[in-house]
Design a protein around this nucleic acid. Sequence first.
DNA 1: TATGAATGAGCCTTCATTCAT
DNA 2: AATGAATGAAGGCTCATTCAT
Lengths: 219, 219, 219, 219
Amino acid sequence: MSHKPEIKIPASQDATRQQLLGAAGEVFAEVGFRNATVREICRRAGANIAAINYHFGDKEKLYAEVLRYAHTRALEKYPAFQGVAADATAEQKLRAFVHSFLLRIFDDSPTACHGKLMSREMIEPTAALDSLVEEFIRPMAGQLWKIVADILGCPLNDERVRLCAFSVVSQCVFYHHCGPVVSRLSGRPAADAAAIEKLAAHITKFSLAAMKNFSDKKR
Amino acid sequence: MSHKPEIKIPASQDATRQQLLGAAGEVFAEVGFRNATVREICRRAGANIAAINYHFGDKEKLYAEVLRYAHTRALEKYPAFQGVAADATAEQKLRAFVHSFLLRIFDDSPTACHGKLMSREMIEPTAALDSLVEEFIRPMAGQLWKIVADILGCPLNDERVRLCAFSVVSQCVFYHHCGPVVSRLSGRPAADAAAIEKLAAHITKFSLAAMKNFSDKKR
Amino acid sequence: MSHKPEIKIPASQDATRQQLLGAAGEVFAEVGFRNATVREICRRAGANIAAINYHFGDKEKLYAEVLRYAHTRALEKYPAFQGVAADATAEQKLRAFVHSFLLRIFDDSPTACHGKLMSREMIEPTAALDSLVEEFIRPMAGQLWKIVADILGCPLNDERVRLCAFSVVSQCVFYHHCGPVVSRLSGRPAADAAAIEKLAAHITKFSLAAMKNFSDKKR
Amino acid sequence: MSHKPEIKIPASQDATRQQLLGAAGEVFAEVGFRNATVREICRRAGANIAAINYHFGDKEKLYAEVLRYAHTRALEKYPAFQGVAADATAEQKLRAFVHSFLLRIFDDSPTACHGKLMSREMIEPTAALDSLVEEFIRPMAGQLWKIVADILGCPLNDERVRLCAFSVVSQCVFYHHCGPVVSRLSGRPAADAAAIEKLAAHITKFSLAAMKNFSDKKR
DNA sequence: TATGAATGAGCCTTCATTCAT
DNA sequence: AATGAATGAAGGCTCATTCAT
């Protein structure tokens, strides 16, 4: 409010764009696309109310960019196989995959909104979801399928590979998406780093135990 | 609020209330609480635009009632252990639990909205969630914990019981909540009765395999 | 501005609708459809800003209704052959037609806006013009064609009938539509009742003189 | 971007100005002053969005220049007495005047916008109209008055001269200004060269017939 | 009791204009 | 000299809610 003229000086084109992407990510994550107001986004970005239309065309196009931006950042920050050698065992890779998946989804630093945005996208998919699946999610699914096929000893396109992979992912997603119920049932609040660690251990153990005993049993 | 002069046929008064509950369930499920308009709800219910405020006070109180109503109906329609004897094995009970859970969550008949409402409630919990958990979800969790404890051979309050129960439920919830991604990845549309049957079989098999091999392995 | 509580009491549905039609007519006539603001219309109508959407759907539908309303009123107020017997001569009918046409078009009482609305409609025709022509203008053109055909001694569908009728109407329209130039050239302001009388006399005389001498001359 | 060392042809500066005048003429003619956006004008002119303010001060001053520019061009392209000798008869001069008037007003080549701009100016006169009348329209009216006075055999300042001249011009203007109604009534689209020729013939014939029979009749 | 006309805050978007570069 | 990012007022429209009937 006072002078702070320096805040406006660096306002090069890209700076404002970036501020808007960040602020929009926060707001969309907090209240969803529809409930988010451009006023609030611009306010947080320190930009004029017309800035969104100027830089992105409209609110919807901004949202699409935010979604891509959030995904890109999340994958850069938490690569799927961080700290795992290329020749590691499938079990080791699974553990890493689950752990980084959880870290990615639970990161609630102000700049991270990937998890929440995806949760909302699941409930009300937008036009942006199609390309998001092809660009980010399908490749990641492919990585998991390889690991699972290896563990099961199945060909990659066996239906059981898909089913077991979904069973793995479902456990990761669950604690994030059903957080409100999980925390009410367990009496504990959201997940911290230690809890995530523990969760990753359980999911990996549970899933490996299941898959090791899987192939030789018919339903 | 006062006495409800009792004698009254279940007539007009209650009829409108009921119509509103039904219509509101549909609309809230389709577009969420915020995006739902009282005009549309009243239109579908064949009621006056002021009917919601008259019968329920405001939109939010209507929503809370819809949530309870939807849960009650869903549990009546798909009891947790339908067709399973009280002395059935834990495995049989688990199978029944999973199957009815899936049926409940995937029922998309116009009068059923329990699944969609819960999905939305996970993302933006309302004040109604607290009582919902206590009244409906905790009892159901208790039932599952018993089964899991039996299978694991653990005491009921062992942490592994909670974790494994979550692992079971997470798989059930996943196909519903992440439907938009699952269908895009698999190329198949939503779930029909046969698919649900198959899903129930997989989840049960996967979970039993995991839990059978669980206790004797360290992570 | 002061109390005038009685202004709001009679605010039955139709009263507000009527107020809006009147106010909208004024505003649309003054500044055109696009430049007219719903805020100003509602202000003049003593109505809430949402009243237009409530009663008419949107600004455009309001405009269409205003156009029809203004036409209907103008034709009621100034019938084409007021004070002329059914068996009057074609010359007498022409004189009456021209006179009432001018009166209609120049009426600038606050409730009359027909003339200005039509002028604007000529420059930027809206979707409403089509039905307006069929419903109001074509019947009136038919009346004039009969008179002209009678004077020329031509069959009704002779091309000269159309051309001469247009020549008559063009003179009526001109003083209204080109008022800004006419008044600047002649130094006189807009038209009062006496001026209209004189104008009607000239146009009738000019046109009759032309048509009397018309048929027997080749160009 | 680099230096463009001064020598500079009358180029860029004036070139941009000229482009803006042309583009603005088009846009103002198409959608009117208020609905025209500086963005669209600059886009069509291949100029920067700030170019209008830079070269003309603001949108309104640009409009005034466009109006003068369009008039000048229209009069250069269609002189009032093209192809008519100085000693031609008044009838011949009238014919030429009417024809060139129609050509001027109906020219809808992209660079011509005189007719449409004037139509709009009639409905919402701007400050630019005053000087436009003095500079372009009054001289032209003077020319017509002379012709008409000659035909009527009246002194130049006789009121009948004004009235008859208006009657002539009104017919020319009518087909342009009321085009939307004329075309709907006649089923024919806008005017091509042949139609204009025919129109000129009719207007001249009608007007001459009227004026020849005029002076000796009192109303 | 039940209605529906009326309310006014708030939404996204558009626009001419400005100003630092 | 010329740019284009940024501005902020104002536009049409939607909505849950109220209140006189």
